[in-house]
């Protein structure tokens, strides 16, 4: 009856009363392929969060500083990558630029503002770094405008690979997981096996003593800050190709990163890794499974929205539970 003929296909209105509305035919069957895909999605989200949280926890562990502007460095990375990729046509050049730009922005931030905050209490740090968020957001808006930028994944990483069980998984997301594993291994080696890592660990334990031993603590702090910033920038560039590169993209990511480091134990890289993967898996599997579980007990019209609402709280419930049993997180660096 509603044939679409030459650009006109209906003129008459009809409204179905709400109870007659369609319901999904039935829950989507849980297959092995879907389960594997969702586990990979959770892992990938976790790895992404780790890249942001690693810098945040490193900076807190070494300098005792709460840096709310960490999300801004993530945004700087994404914008640097998007604008360089748009002008040169190369994602890889953009990726390198994003590391450099975020590290430079981080170093500048440390020298100009953060350095004055180490001796002050956390409230001052939070206030000052919150101000930095506003400065970075408005600065970025001023430079790039209010509309989202375009950034696509590089051609080599386009497409999907087959999974056991008949599923498919995007190559780019697998690459993100690989980058995350490499960064985790690299940080482990850097902190555990190098002279710089030894100084970082010493700085965490006793900053007066290491300064007294003749280590240039100011340069060390700037370096650690730039390293953390570069990791955030890398995450921003990688995520920028998946999402929309826009002003304000850093703050939601920052909130999740804080959840991760609170769960993992503030200051612990290992804790950040475990916490990030945990949060990634719980969030993804919650979104995936909760509406299905609720559909067993609730009518289908309610199961969807209620499931979605609870799924969005799940990681905070996880954080509250972990804090109740281990108040300093899973792997606290300071206990």
């Amino acid at each position: 009856m509603a044939a679409f003929v030459s650009g006109q296909f209906r003129t008459q209105d009809r409204y179905a009363p709400l109870p007659e509305l369609l319901q999904p035919a039935g829950p989507i069957p849980l297959s092995l392929a879907l389960l594997i895909e969702q586990l990979l999605n959770g892992l990938q989200l976790g790895v992404m969060l780790f890249l942001i949280a690693a810098g945040l926890t490193l900076i807190f562990g070494v300098m005792g500083l709460i840096n709310l502007a960490h999300g801004s460095l993530y945004m700087v990375g994404a914008f640097a990558c998007a604008s360089v990729a748009a002008t040169t046509g190369s994602f890889w050049l953009g990726l390198v630029t994003s590391l450099a730009a975020a590290a430079a922005a981080g170093a500048l931030m440390e020298v100009a503002v953060i350095r004055r905050l180490y001796a002050r209490d956390h409230l001052d740090q939070v206030l000052a770094t919150f101000a930095l968020i506003l400065v970075f957001s408005e600065g970025t808006r001023w430079l790039f405008g209010s509309f989202p930028l375009y950034l696509d994944i590089p051609p080599v990483l386009q497409g999907a690979v087959a999974l056991p069980g008949g599923g498919q998984y995007p190559l780019y997301r697998l690459a993100i997981i690989a980058v995350g594993v490499l960064v985790a291994a690299g940080l482990y080696l850097l902190i555990g096996r190098t002279r710089l890592g030894m100084r970082i660990r010493a700085g965490e334990t006793d900053r007066e003593m290491i300064a007294a031993l003749g280590v240039d603590i100011r340069a060390l702090y700037t370096l650690v800050f730039a390293l953390g910033a570069a990791l955030a920038g890398l995450a921003g560039a990688l995520v920028g190709a998946l999402q929309s590169v826009q002003v304000g993209m850093g703050e939601p990511a920052l909130i999740l990163a804080f959840v991760v480091i609170v769960i993992g134990g503030i200051g612990s890289i290992k804790g950040a890794l475990v916490g990030a993967v945990l949060v990634g898996l719980v969030d993804t599997m919650g979104r995936f499974l909760l509406p299905k579980l609720l559909a067993l007990a609730l009518p289908a019209t309610q199961a969807g929205p209620v499931g979605a609402a609870i799924a969005s709280m799940l990681i905070y419930i996880l954080m509250a539970l972990i804090l109740a049993f281990r108040p300093s997180g899973l792997f606290s660096a300071r206990s």
Binding site: I28, P29, S31, A33, L34, E37, Q38, N41, G42, Q44, L45, G167, Q168, P170, R173, T284, R287, F288
Partner: peptide, 10 residues
């Protein structure tokens, strides 16, 4: 990603 996986399986 989680939603797209469900779309694929649906």
């Amino acid at each position: 990603a989680a939603e797209i996986a469900e779309i694929r399986a649906s």
